[in-house]
Design a protein around this nucleic acid. Structure first.
Length: 314
RNA sequence: GGCGCCAUGGCCAAGCGGUAAGGCAAAGGUCUGCAACACCUCUAUCCCCGGUCCGAUUCCGGGUGGCGCCU
């Protein structure tokens, strides 16, 4: 009998957190973060992390624990998430994953552990320099020689992923395609239902995004960004430094742009992110979509609860 | 009122006689190892009218609009 796991997915600012909390209250569940940025400490406003009162209503896991200076990846997330599910199980609670990082969920539900491979920063720098000097195709050719299958799947211009594939081979002695093939053999350890929030009217989502960014600014996003900047988070080549919400504001702090323009950049980056998420969730996993246009959280929860009770729990 | 400059896709912008670079945004997409990352695809007949020319976005004249300066 597999552990039952519910995942609330969807684009950023679609209202996942609110829905997850409402469902957790109704169904007796606990929330597990599957968001690559909300895991970090000191990044509260910009990542739209649940606030004090929300955290008080329902038990939340894997939020706000990682050091922004430390690189954190999907491979780090999987064992933590698995352990968290184990940890909750004895309480008989429903596990509710909530977050927008589709890759994390995808990997978690694929059931395979990552073979441990090292991160080799100097190798990355070396390969970047190689690509710069001899061209993307030359670098891609190197991958083609050791792992033609991965080379086939990764576009030559996608230097970052070409390097990662090379790095996997260098640090583990196995090719990425070999490891991928192995992991494909394992099955999902959980009994999963995924509920996705979407909008019939794209503009409605974009309005929510714009509104939320303005709200973040009111809540002190600039102060939070400045603190991270002063602490040197953005100097590090860390995952946290990639978070939307901060890096777009850097040009303002450097005096390169008026605040107004930096904020517009932030809104655009968020909208583009939402679009990518929709593309991802459309083609990964069996998501049951519910439309949120004009609905309140409780109306949305009614709908989601109905689906869950009908198809998932007895 | 006079003089000068400018007028290219939603925005920025190159071209300056042979039928429109590039960037951004938008849209669509890829992604099993940094994923709020990275990458791919993709969008115009050049303000209007007339003239010169085999041929004008490119030259000439006029108009309209904008910017600057002068009285």
């Amino acid at each position: 009998m597999k552990t039952k796991v519910l995942a609330v997915v969807g684009p950023t600012a679609s209202g996942k957190s609110a829905l997850a909390i409402e469902l957790a209250k109704r169904l007796g569940g606990e929330i597990i973060c599957c968001d690559s940025m909300q895991i970090y400490k000191q990044m509260n406003i910009g990542t739209a992390k649940p606030d004090e009162s929300e955290l008080a209503q329902v038990k939340h896991h894997l939020f706000d624990f990682a050091d922004p200076f430390v690189s954190f990846s999907c491979a780090d997330y999987i064992p933590l998430a698995q352990a968290t599910v184990e940890d909750i199980s004895p309480h008989g609670k429903l596990h509710i994953f909530c977050g927008g990082t589709g890759l994390y969920l995808d990997r978690l539900f694929s059931g395979a552990d990552f073979a441990s491979t090292e991160i080799d920063e100097s190798f990355r720098r070396e390969m970047e320099a190689f690509a710069l000097e001899y061209g993307n195709d030359a670098l891609h050719q190197r991958l083609r020689e050791i792992d033609p299958k991965s080379a086939e799947e990764i576009h030559p211009n996608n230097v970052k992923r070409v390097i990662r594939a090379l790095e996997i081979y260098k640090t583990s002695g196995r090719t990425k395609s070999e490891l991928d093939a192995e992991s494909r053999e394992s099955e999902n350890p959980y009994d999963v239902i995924q509920i996705g929030i979407c909008f019939e009217d794209r503009e409605a989502l974009y309005k929510r995004i714009n509104y939320r960014v303005d709200k973040m600014l009111e809540m002190g996003l600039l102060t939070e960004t400045k603190a991270l900047l002063d602490a040197g988070v953005f100097d590090a080549n860390s995952t946290a430094a990639q978070a939307i919400g901060y890096k777009e504001l850097l040009s303002y702090f450097k005096g390169e742009k008026p605040l107004e323009d930096a904020v517009e950049d932030l809104k655009i980056a968020t909208r583009r992110y939402a679009k990518r998420q929709m593309t991802w969730f459309k083609s990964h996993g069996d998501v049951i979509w519910i439309f949120a246009d004009g609905k309140s959280v409780s109306e949305l929860a009614d709908e989601a609860e109905g689906i869950i009770k009908e198809r998932f729990i007895d």
